[in-house]
Design a binder for these strands. Sequence first.
DNA 1: CAGACAAATGGTAGCGCTACCATGCAAGGG
DNA 2: CCCTTGCATGGTAGCGCTACCATTTGTCTG
Lengths: 342, 342
Amino acid sequence: MTKPRSRRGGGRPTIADVARKAGVGAITVSRALREPGRVSEDLRRQIQAAVDELGYVPDPNARALASARAEVFGVLVPSLTNNVFAEVVRGIYDSLSDSPFRIQIGNTHYSGLEEERLLQVFGSQRPAALIVAGIDQTPRARRLLENAGCPVVQVMETGPDPVDMMVGFSHLDGGRTATEHLLQAGYRRIGFIGARMDPRSQRRLAGYRAAMEAAGLFDPRLITTTPVPSSVTLGRELFRDALAKMPTLDGVFCNNDDIALGVLFECHRASIDVPKQIGIVGFNDLDMMHVSFPSITSVRTHRYEIGTRAVAMALAAIAGNPPEQRIVDLGFELMRRESTAR
Amino acid sequence: MTKPRSRRGGGRPTIADVARKAGVGAITVSRALREPGRVSEDLRRQIQAAVDELGYVPDPNARALASARAEVFGVLVPSLTNNVFAEVVRGIYDSLSDSPFRIQIGNTHYSGLEEERLLQVFGSQRPAALIVAGIDQTPRARRLLENAGCPVVQVMETGPDPVDMMVGFSHLDGGRTATEHLLQAGYRRIGFIGARMDPRSQRRLAGYRAAMEAAGLFDPRLITTTPVPSSVTLGRELFRDALAKMPTLDGVFCNNDDIALGVLFECHRASIDVPKQIGIVGFNDLDMMHVSFPSITSVRTHRYEIGTRAVAMALAAIAGNPPEQRIVDLGFELMRRESTAR
DNA sequence: CAGACAAATGGTAGCGCTACCATGCAAGGG
DNA sequence: CCCTTGCATGGTAGCGCTACCATTTGTCTG
């Protein structure tokens, strides 16, 4: 009674096994699984029973090969540990968990070259959609995206020239808003502290600069940055540097919340009063910002929603209903807290 | 001169195109790409030239179908945003970035049922290896792992009964060590504060309990837990609860560093002296623990290494050299800091 | 120098699935 | 009553690649 199993297949049931058991053609099984509406209810039930009994699970590789389309979302992010991208990715996962789509994440390590390489690898799989972080692709990466033959969503930022679709917000506006808030609170010698300085950080810095120049208070010596990856420890160190360089500093707009937390800890340690002597503003508004003592003002960004929205737009496009609005600005929200309440 | 392209294929070059251009058989191209040693240098060069000129990238789906083995590592973690797993995943990505293997991550949301579902999905792809977090699989999940037909590495914890291989450490010992440290520092009414309370948290709690019982100081009222996901905010709230319940509390061992940070902030806010009035120990030793004021004692765990080691073991097994040591205990390290220095 | 053997290359036949094109049949139109 | 139309189902032919089994050539052994 042993079936003449081929040399290779590990012996798991195939669509032909299901078809035989259900007494129908293989193609009908295929249809029953993918477009139930096109198969009569009778057969559908029979087929489902056979599927259950055999424990049949379609082979996605065979499926992808035959249909020239893999049920995969390719996702490219520059970092896996940075909470910001982790939240976006979580949104993507949650939105796709009930769909047949798998997710393939690529970590570009903030490198354009690596991004190109991964896009080429992803492209070879004919993904159903691509979601990439950022809008500063290299020309070659951009070309790969344009020729991917599937919906593409650029996330995290908005800009004038989407490859296909975009979901994000203006980091420049975020930086400006944060800085203007410090100015309105009466701070004058406001520093900018930034790590990593990827394109988004650069634009936050540009927003800071715009606000400071508008107030006639800009001074390049107020800026302290490093290409080193961001961390709480680094925030502390950069703040010390900034203070050494510019002892009259009375406020800081931080690249992100890790840095801001590092600044706060250093203030504790050096007995610098926050917000009296120094005002602090962070970026992203992680959970800890509103719990810290004092709580830290931060620019809340909608990271999880960026992920869910990107998926929704891609799914719509796959279904043939590309959204009318190709650029979605989810905005941000300034969360005023104790660290700037003087 | 237009090639008679099939109705489906998007027109990208196939192995046959490369073979034609290089003037060799398709199978030789296949070999040149996978086992260069088995093809003469002459042909290898010719083939490489054709590959470069055409921009040929092998179709992983066709490859997987033909070889009954996908070059994919399946990775199952309970959370994507929890820094602990993000670090493990980062280790996995970094270790595989130069290999032909792709990575497919599944998020189980701490659910055994979801883990089963994902294992079934992953299994249908015939992955090259599976890496799963934890050792408490459901019987069905365990069976799926055993029948996966590929190396399996359970990570984060060690235990007596691996499905195949294991890399991690003893959370029980970690909890005990942390608690013993508090005891040695002279704290007596030591509380346990824990969120989520997944199996690993449970074992840390068991370690705490063992240490307290050994010291004759155990009291169930010292334990404050919740199934709610961990956060800094939650740490603050749980600490307040704990203190309300047991005002004589003089130390806390926290489930993880987020909780510990929340405790520290609440101490600041309530003017409770750390370490004089309250000693605090965290778990995992995130970056911020040594920067905070005061710095927080924590149990450092080797999360990134767990990821890299798991990959190394799986790769060895794939290559036919399963490691002799199937259970690898990477241990942990108690980082003594100001929060327990009284 | 025949025979054995290894190394390099190629042909063929699938892997498991779906696109495409029948086929059969009931319902509706002239 | 024939012809169209549409629906449900099935057969066939690949998708692009690799496992398996030749075949060819060169090298070594006795």
